[in-house]
Amino acid sequence: MTRNESEPRHKPDEPGRADMAERLDPYCLKEGEGELLSGHPWRRFVALGDSVVEGLGDAVPGYLDEPWVDRLAGALRQHAGDLVFRNLGRRNTRAALVRSTQLDKALAFEPDLALVACGGYDTLVARFDEHRVASEIRAIVGALQDRGSTVITVSMIDSSRSPQLPPAVRERFARRLRALSDATSVIARDLGTLHIDLFDHPVGDADNLLSADGRHANRRGHAIAAAEAVRAVGAHLARPELRNGAA
């Protein structure tokens, strides 16, 4: 079933909330940064993609156990209590399948804000066709924009730099991730998306970023990605041409 988030998973006054390490992490959100989203115009937010969007990741002591896209939705909801969020992300889903199985659902939701993050699972299969993946992402973004959505695209943190990743697969994985990041950045430039570029983030070579599977960010990684997403969206909203109009 598709998850429909009507409220954040963690309320500010929830007993036992253990996020002390997150509060001290230099890369995570600081008190007051959520105000960067104040006055945003969006009320219907949808996310499409693979496991990056679904939110897979191991829990980490001292960090909230919440995926980064859900965190972004919660931060947006703090300034628009009627915001409705749908997360269509599914693990093990190639970009072509995101377009064929999620796009129509997303369009039917009539979003004014959409996040697209896919292609990561394509980098794990035997043959990675970066041009085909780029074509699928471009088609998804274009269709959403044609319906009036502000679209967020993402170049995720380069996890191939992590010491947790086995050296035997690191080089090939690094090439593929770089190709995906570059292709997504080109699409963002060509189509004018709100782009969150995390690829060269300094945390990528940390030894405590990945889950036990060596593929997905753990909850520290999700907390950092959420922080950078809030900052990127806030910077977008601060653009002079948007201060007195829709994003």
Rank of each mutant, 00 (worst) to 15 (best):
P8Y: 06
P8A: 02
G16P: 08
R17N: 04
R17A: 07
R17G: 10
A18C: 02
D19L: 10
E22R: 11
E22C: 11
L24T: 15
P26Y: 15
Y27F: 05
Y27M: 03
C28S: 07
C28T: 03
L29K: 07
E33A: 10
E33T: 11
E35R: 08
E35F: 14
E35A: 09
E35G: 06
S38L: 12
S38T: 15
R44C: 08
R44G: 10
F45P: 00
V46Y: 01
S51L: 02
V53L: 06
L56W: 14
D58H: 12
D58G: 05
A59N: 09
A59W: 11
V60C: 12
P61E: 10
E66T: 10
V69P: 02
D70V: 11
R71K: 08
L72A: 12
G74H: 07
Q78A: 13
H79G: 09
A80G: 13
L88N: 00
G89F: 04
R91N: 06
R91C: 13
R91E: 06
R91T: 14
N92P: 01
T93V: 12
V98H: 02
R99I: 03
S100M: 03
Q102N: 07
Q102R: 02
L103S: 12
A106N: 14
L107D: 15
A108L: 06
F109C: 01
L113W: 04
L115P: 00
V116M: 02
A117V: 00
C118Y: 02
C118Q: 10
G119W: 01
G119R: 01
Y121M: 05
Y121G: 04
T123E: 14
T123K: 07
L124P: 08
V125T: 08
A126N: 14
R127M: 12
R132A: 09
A134N: 10
I140R: 06
A143Q: 09
A143G: 07
A143C: 11
L144W: 00
Q145D: 13
Q145P: 01
Q145G: 14
D146N: 10
T150L: 02
I152C: 02
I152K: 00
V154Q: 06
S159C: 05
S160E: 07
P166M: 05
P166K: 07
P166I: 05
R170H: 10
R170C: 14
F173V: 11
F173N: 03
R175M: 02
A179P: 09
D182N: 03
D190L: 07
G192P: 05
L194I: 14
L194G: 02
L194Y: 03
L194V: 11
L194K: 01
H195K: 14
I196Q: 00
I196D: 00
F199W: 04
N208M: 07
S211P: 12
A212G: 10
R215V: 10
H216P: 02
H216Y: 08
A217P: 13
A217K: 10
R220A: 12
H222G: 01
A225L: 04
A227S: 07
A229D: 05
V230P: 00
A232R: 09
G234V: 15
R239V: 03
P240H: 14
R243Y: 14
R243E: 13
N244D: 14
A246P: 12
A247G: 13
A247D: 08
